[in-house]
Every structure is written in structure tokens, then in C-alpha cells.
Amino acid sequence: MDVFDILDRLVAFPSVAGKPNGDIAGWIEAYLAKHTTQVTLLPGPEGDRSNLFATIGPCDVPGYILSGHMDVVPASEPQWSSSPFALRKEGERLYGRGTTDMKGFLAAVLAAVPALAALRLARPIHFAFSYDEEVGCRGVPHLIARLPELCAQPLGVIVGEPSGLRAVRSHKGKAAARLIINGRSGHSSRPDLGLNAIHAMAGALSAVVSEAERLTNGPFDPDFEPPYSSLQAGVIAGGHQVNIIPDTCTLDLEARAVPGVDPASLLAPVKARAEALAAQGFRVEWKPMSAYPALSLPQDAALAALLRELTGEVPLAAVSYGTEAGLYQDAGLDAIICGPGDIDRAHKPDEYILTNELAACQRLIGALGARCAA
């Protein structure tokens, strides 16, 4: 199968994050098994989703991981010009959900398997394909925990998120949470008999605004735009109608932290402000939604030098979006971002990747294979 046939099959799996992924993981497992690749499905604690890890070459020698996720965001937007889960070619564009983020990378990796297997690699190339990346990198921690039993300590991890095939050394970390304040309902004419959850949320929302302003004072990292950490309220909901005391109010908030700052710590002042409401009779729930650490690979790292050699370009210092790379680095592995496509096409109707972007990614993987065979 060539890269286009493989991408066609991958896009056809509606592997939306948070849903069972046995179909796509099983298909990839079967494909790899045909090429005598060492492949292992790693079920997650959910019971209906699995990561996948595979190796070409010797497992007991340090090598490189090509990392990607099998899940995609939903494709319910009415603006799609054709079925999002059926690959459509129009000129050099290949349309479909996940073509750029990031089944295009997976297809390029899988299409390279026969050639890599024929090289008899001296250093292994591993494939680490995760689930539920799009809902907070929930699957890959379980895969990372299993790495010591699956392979020797890798030399580095290349995360194939869309970067225009330009390597990227850094991104911010992120933490998101949902705050739910439960009060007591009643008629609006008797506010003394109820507990207004929206009014109570105002204090927590004020804490978000003040903390967001404080973060503009640093610490700073000039590689990023903006060069400081951030905090924002993204979604707020509560109440039924104007003459009813609202008994529930919900706030979704997120923090994005420059390297060296724990993103979860940026949410702590808001959590503390909300939990203090318990003394007034409110019931407060704090539900973490997602978290991943920042990525910060030194400019002089061997992995950065390798990607500079393979791509012919100096790695970019940073990007604004986040990836699983920070989790690999947090586990003690050097990691870098480098994949085909443009992140600006992701999570939109008529997402697409270009045929020449897939071809360039295949050449990059082939060059990595040549290095590992030397």
C-alpha cells in the first residue's frame, strides 16, 4: 500500500477522541504484523481504547521513537464540502478529518515500514501511537509508563504534529479544569432564602482576571508569543431564567505556562478562592480536565542537531500549540516536534494535507532510517 491508500484507510476510521479506538488500532496492528514488525497493543484503563507500540530493529539498543496520535477532533461542522471521514483528492490537496492532525504523519510512517524493515537497522526506530491526545493527552502517559519493558532507553522522540516539517524545540504547558458551584434555588423575590451560584462564581472569575493580569509581569520567555504564562476563563454557564435563583454555575478555565512553570500551579489561586465558598454553604466541585507539561529542548541538544541535519533547517525555538512531547521530556526523554502539514488547517472544516508534504515526510523518515542503518 502506498501512503495515499494508507491515509484513505486511516481517515475512514472515525476515531474521535474519547471514543473506543479498537478499529483503527487493530488495523494498524495488522498492517505492521505483515511486515514482521514487533508490535504491541497497550490497552488503557478505560478498557475500550489502546495505545500501540512497535519496533523495527533491535529492542535492546537505543534508538528513536516516531510518535503520533490516532484520535481526531469531532467533525460535526456543517461547512464540510464532503464527508469528513472519506478521503477526497482535489489537485494536490487531500481532504478529510485528521489529514493534517495527524493521520498524515501516521500514514507516512506506515508507508515507510517496508523500506525501513529492509534496511536491517543497527539502531531501532519505534512507533508510539496514542489515543485521546485531543482531550488532554490522556492516553500517552500509559504508553510512556510501559516503555522500560518495551525498549532500551531511546535517544529521542520525534512527535509528528503538523509543523511544516520544520523541527520545533519548545511549547508551553497547559492545565485546564472545570469549576462547578452548587447553591440553592428559589424565587428571585426571596434571595435571602437561596444561594446564588452565579454570584458566588463572580469571586472565582475575579480571581481568574486578576491572576491573568499578574502573569503579564512574568516570568518571561522571549521564544513565545506572548512571552509570559496566561490564564483565561473559556466557558461559563448557569441559571435557568431571570426570576429563579440560580443553583448551579460552571466555569471552564485553562492556564498555559512557559517552560519552568507548572501550569497546574497557575490554577491554584482560583481553586482556593472557590473552595472558600464552602464556608457560606455552597458545594464546590473542581474537576481537572487536562494537563501536560511544557517542552523545552536545549538548542545544543543532539536531537536538535539530528533534525537540523535531516530537514536542512535550523529548528524553530517555539510554537504556541501543545503536544505530547512535553510528557516524553518529563519522563526523561529528549523530544522534538516535526511533522507534515500546517497546524492552521487543523480542527477546521475541509482540513487537508498536500501530497508533496506527505512525500517530504516520507523522505525525512527514510533519511532517519539511513542514519540508523549506518
Rank of each mutant, 00 (worst) to 15 (best):
C59M: 15
P124S: 05
S82E: 07
D192W: 10
C338M: 01
L179T: 02
V16H: 08
L165F: 15
G238P: 05
W80I: 15
F224P: 14
I244W: 04
Y352N: 12
G238F: 05
V319I: 12
T37G: 00
P62V: 15
E29V: 09
I198N: 11
S296D: 11
L303V: 09
L94Q: 04
D330P: 11
G44P: 00
E161T: 12
R283C: 15
I245N: 03
L195P: 07
P340H: 03
A360N: 04
T250I: 15
N356V: 15
K348F: 04
R273L: 13
A202P: 09
I198T: 09
G22D: 14
Y31R: 13
G18P: 11
E324Q: 06
L215R: 02
Y321P: 01
S76W: 14
Y328D: 02
R345K: 13
V261F: 01
R256Y: 14
G369R: 00
V235C: 11
D221G: 02
L307P: 06
E92T: 12
S83Q: 13
K34M: 09
P227W: 03
A274K: 04
P141R: 03
A257G: 03
I353A: 11
E46K: 08
V258T: 10
R49P: 00
E134N: 07
C137G: 14
P226R: 02
V209G: 08
H347S: 04
A75F: 13
L121Q: 00
G164W: 08
H69E: 08
L306V: 13
A115E: 02
F105C: 08
I125V: 07
G164Y: 11
R308M: 07
D300V: 08
N356T: 14
G366I: 04
R283K: 15
G44W: 00
A367T: 14
R308V: 06
M289S: 11
G91P: 02
V140H: 05
A117E: 03
G369C: 03
E92M: 01
R97Y: 00
A233D: 09
L266V: 12
E133N: 06
Y328S: 10
G234L: 14
G18Q: 10
G369P: 01
V11P: 00
D334T: 08
V168P: 01
R49Y: 01
L121W: 03
F4K: 11
A335R: 12
C361M: 05
M1E: 14
I65K: 01
A177E: 02
S189R: 00
A317T: 13
A207S: 07
W27R: 05
E149F: 14
A359N: 15
I337G: 08
P154L: 07
I181E: 03
A197L: 04
D101T: 10
H69F: 12
G194A: 14
A274E: 02
P162L: 04
V270Q: 09
S170E: 07
R146Q: 15
V261A: 01
S265W: 09
R146E: 13
G18F: 07
